[in-house]
Each structure stands twice: as C-alpha cells, then as structure tokens.
Write a protein that binds this DNA or RNA. Structure first.
Lengths: 174, 174
DNA sequence: GAGTACGTTTAGTAATTACTAAACGTAATA
DNA sequence: TATTACGTTTAGTAATTACTAAACGTACTC
C-alpha cells in the first residue's frame, strides 16, 4: 500500500504549503521543507525538483533562504558532487535562528526609523501641546519595540529550553 | 514650525508602513494606523483619506480589518453620522487580540490538516520502516504546533501583564 | 580540452495582492 | 420625494511576488 503513502505525503506537503503561506512565506518554500521533513534520507536538488514539481531554479533560490533560516541543512557526500539537503527537526532551534535572522535586516531598519523620529523631534523641539502629544506617542511605541527586541533576544539566548516549557511557565503566570 | 511637524508625521507614517509590510500586512494599513496613532483627536474616514492619500474604498476595507484586530476603535458622536476612529495604544492588548483572531481562521485549518494526516495514517496502518518514520515525523510536528497553540492561548489569558515583564521573566530563565 | 553533471543566474511570465474609481445602498434632512 | 452625506461594494488596474525556462559558469571525467 505504498500508493497511499504517496497520497499521504502529498496531502501533508499541501498542508505545510498552506501554513507557509500563512506565515508570509512562498508556498513552494513550504513544499520543499515538507518533502525534506518526511524523507528518511537526504535529498539532492533534483530529487526535490521531482518531488515538489518546482523547477531547479526555484528550488535553488528558495532552499538557500531555508538554509539561511536554519530550517534545512546542506551536506555533501564524498565522491559525489551533488548537494544533499535535510530538514531541521529541532523547531525550537529553527525559531531561534529565524529570530536571529530578523534581528538584522529590514525590521531593525524600520524600528530604527522610529527612533530617528524621536531624535529628530528632540533636535528641533517646539513647545506646544500637539508636539508633546506626538512625542509621547512615538516614545511609547519605541518602548514597545524595545520590549519586543529584548524579548526576542531573550528567546535567542535560551539554549535548551523547549517551547512547551515556556508555555507552562506562561501558564503559571496567569 | 508646524511645517516640520508635518514632515515628522510623514516620516513616522512611512516608517510604520514599512513595519507593516514586514509583518505581511499591506503598507496602507500601516499608514492608516500611524496617522491615527499620532492624532490627538479621533479622525473620520474622510480625514484619514486626506492624511494617507488612499481612497475611501481602501480605507474603508482596511480599517475594518484593523478594527477586527483590535488595533483601532470605531466610535460615533451624537448628532453626527460620521464614524470616528482612534488607535489602540495598549499594544499588549492588541497582540492578544491578534492572537485570538488567528486562533480561528486559516492557520487553525492548516494545522488541523496535519492532525488529519496523522489519523489518516492510523486508520490505514502499514507496518514498515518508512511508514513508521513518516508517522514519527508528522507526530513531532503536530506536537510542536500544539505547543505553539498552548503558548498563544497562555498569552491570551494574561490580562494585565506587560510585555516587558514577560521579557524579564524569560531573561531569568537563561 | 570536449563532454557531462551539476548549481546558479537571469529574463520573462503567471499569479496574487493592494489599490483606485466609481456605482451603489442607506438613512437623515429638507 | 428629492437631496445630501456618508460608508460599502464592485469591477478593473497597478504593483508585487512567485515562479518557469533556458542560458550560463564551474569543475570534474575521460
């Protein structure tokens, strides 16, 4: 009944693709991860191509971002010039890796622009009601971003704590 | 120097738009929120239109999703048939609201599909190595999703705890 | 050093998403 | 009942993003 295993794999892959899209990633990326995740062996780029139905080019570029996120790992076999890929199975590690990735890049730049707004106002201060109001609001927002920032840094630092433990702890706080 | 306040508002709005896009929301949505956030008074739909440069239609639809997320609030004035909008300033409340929103919808459906994969395998069991392997992997993924689920439920339950406190607590765990 | 087996880049296309313009519905006002 | 002042819906367009097909580069093999 290997036929129905094929169907199960296909359904699973579709499900992960949906989840991928939900989180704002291309669905092809989800498909690639899914295929690797349920494969007992490391797969070559061409094997991924046939499993997902995407082209080499697409797999090549998307798998690079998956690797950068720490969701897949590239390896090689001696005397074989193909690259082989496996899925990361420690999702907690993957989350940390993604957070680290986001630490730099776009988001940081955008957050910095809020801080810039604040210093621009300070450097150019006008004492009136609206000015004060806007300043206070922007400042509150910046504090919120700072909190997010330290939260994600804290999560990054947690080496071995499983997500379920974090859940329990938050549960106790209620 | 009200002219430079206008510039500051514009820069701030642009920054928030970027952040909005980063999180996978339309940048117009970010602009609408930003304009409301730094406005001392509640704004009507048409005022938002002139401030953001979007059309009525766009503001109408996007503000509805902002309201559903709890990021803005709609209000009315007696003897005035306009709707007025204000920004939510308690971001922690907004986060809870967004999590609650996501609890239903797409993501849940996708996660359910993983669970379906598991039961499909159980109902149709074949005893061989690959089958066992795939089952174990899918099961691990499902446990991860369950953990995420209880984490978000736990966060939703925390009524009054500020985000910065959560940060501190996670810091201690290290 | 010609042929082959790869991964990558690029230029173009398909699909999706964000938005506009304008018609529409509704309720208050005259 | 006609007019006005609103918010919503809809049908189409612009912009963005995901992807394909094919050329390309590189390095290994004979």
């Amino acid at each position: 009944m290997s036929q129905s295993l094929a169907k199960i794999k296909k359904d699973f892959t579709q499900g992960i693709s949906q989840i991928s899209r939900f989180w704002g990633f291309p669905k092809g990326m989800g498909a690639i991860f899914a295929v690797l995740y349920i494969s007992p062996t490391a797969l070559s780029l061409d094997e991924i191509v046939t499993e997902t139905g995407l082209t080499k080019g697409a797999v090549s570029t998307e798998i690079r971002t998956l690797a950068r996120m720490g969701l897949v790992h590239r390896s090689t076999k001696l005397g074989d010039r193909k690259d082989y890929y496996t899925a990361e199975t420690d999702f907690y590690a993957a989350i940390r890796s993604i957070l680290q990735e986001r630490q730099n890049s776009e988001f940081d730049r955008a957050v910095r622009s809020v801080r810039d707004t604040l210093t621009a106002m300070e450097d150019n201060w006008v004492e009136n009601e609206e000015w004060n109001f806007v300043y206070a609001r922007v400042q509150a927002l910046q504090e919120f971003f700072d909190a997010i920032d330290s939260l994600s840094k804290a999560v990054i630092k947690l080496e071995s704590l499983g997500l379920s433990n974090v859940t329990k702890i938050l549960g106790v706080l209620k």
